[in-house]
């Protein structure tokens, strides 16, 4: 290889990757905008936290649960809704299809790991979803203004800058953790034709252990403590509580979250390498 060619082909360091990420984000955003109507429907399909909010406002008002009030659960589920909108992950369906149809091949032939494309695809979709869910949050606050101003004795809901900052960070950590869980399960596509079956199982755990159906405060302390060692609370409850009350054990939470992240990343890379040996690049 001539020196000139070698120079042109050398990797370009961080600036190169910023450019790759920027180009991918821009293109996926444009791609997702062509599906804006579908995105609206998907968003409505992820409104479960708002339904749970309605249920729990009643429960909170009943006084059955000493730790929660109608206002506190309203704030919690609104925050859950926002986290959910920014952490929707569907990579397994995309990946499974790409493996089974051989479409993964064209990704494999470029010098950038396919994970870049999948992650930016999700972030592009989030950007396309943003105006819709901001509208829904505004509507929810309009319908239940108490969440914002509080009942008598409770103050306005004004999270501190510190809370908001961590909320954003933890929400993206939640996204990456959820992505890693699903993308690792997605690797099973190399062994099974329908890896999404395993995802349904994991979703069930997610539903019950993440704080999607109920705030974890209503659980017995021992159960909650146990759950906090699993990755699930960090997908919703942890960032949502950071915004609604700020009452979380940040250090331990971060340690558990990052620990799971590192473990899943390692698992993912091992499965990726082994899986590729089984890939048959059907049709191409």
């Amino acid at each position: 290889m001539s020196a000139g060619v070698a120079a042109e082909l050398s990797p370009r360091g961080s600036r190169h990757w910023v450019r790759v990420a920027g180009a991918l984000l821009g293109v996926w955003y444009a791609f997702m905008l062509t599906y804006r109507f579908e995105i609206l429907l998907w968003m409505i399909a992820t409104c479960l936290p708002l339904i749970m909010m309605g249920v729990w406002i009643e429960a909170g008002a009943s006084g059955l649960f000493p730790d929660i009030t109608a206002v506190s659960v309203a704030r919690y589920f609104l925050a859950v809704f926002v986290v959910r909108q920014l952490t929707v992950v569907w990579v397994i369906y995309e990946f499974e299809w790409h493996v089974n149809s051989g479409r993964l091949s064209s990704y494999l032939l470029t010098p950038v790991d396919p994970a870049w494309r999948y992650v930016t695809m999700h972030l592009g979709e989030q950007a396309a979803r943003l105006p819709f869910f901001v509208g829904v949050v505004a509507l929810a606050l309009l319908l239940y203004p108490a969440a914002l101003r509080g009942e008598e004795g409770e103050g306005w809901w004004v999270p501190s800058l510190w809370q908001v900052g961590w909320f954003v960070v933890l929400t993206y950590f939640a996204f990456f953790l959820r992505f890693l869980i699903q993308y690792t399960i997605a690797m099973l596509s190399f062994w099974f034709e329908r890896a999404s079956g395993f995802e349904h199982l994991s979703y069930l755990l997610f539903l019950f252990c993440s704080g999607m159906l109920f705030p974890l405060e209503v659980l017995p302390t021992a159960v909650r403590e146990l759950l906090l060692w699993t990755p699930f609370p960090y997908l919703l409850w942890f960032p949502a509580t950071m915004l609604s009350t700020g009452d979380v054990e940040l250090t331990r939470g971060l340690a558990v979250l990052l620990g799971w992240g590192a473990l899943l990343l390692a698992l993912n890379r091992v499965a990726w390498r082994r899986g590729l040996r089984r890939y048959s690049a059907m049709g191409a």
């Binding site: 190169h16 450019r19 920027g22 180009a23 293109v27 444009a30 062509t34 051989g102 064209s106 010098p111």
Partner: peptide, 26 residues
């Protein structure tokens, strides 16, 4: 290049794929 497979993004103009490829290949 495969006659029966494509890398271009179906719903976007070809130029968008070129933009990504230009970035990916530096």
């Amino acid at each position: 290049v495969m006659g029966n497979k494509q890398q271009l993004m179906w719903d976007l103009p070809a130029w968008d794929t070129y933009r990504v490829n230009a970035a990916v290949y530096g």
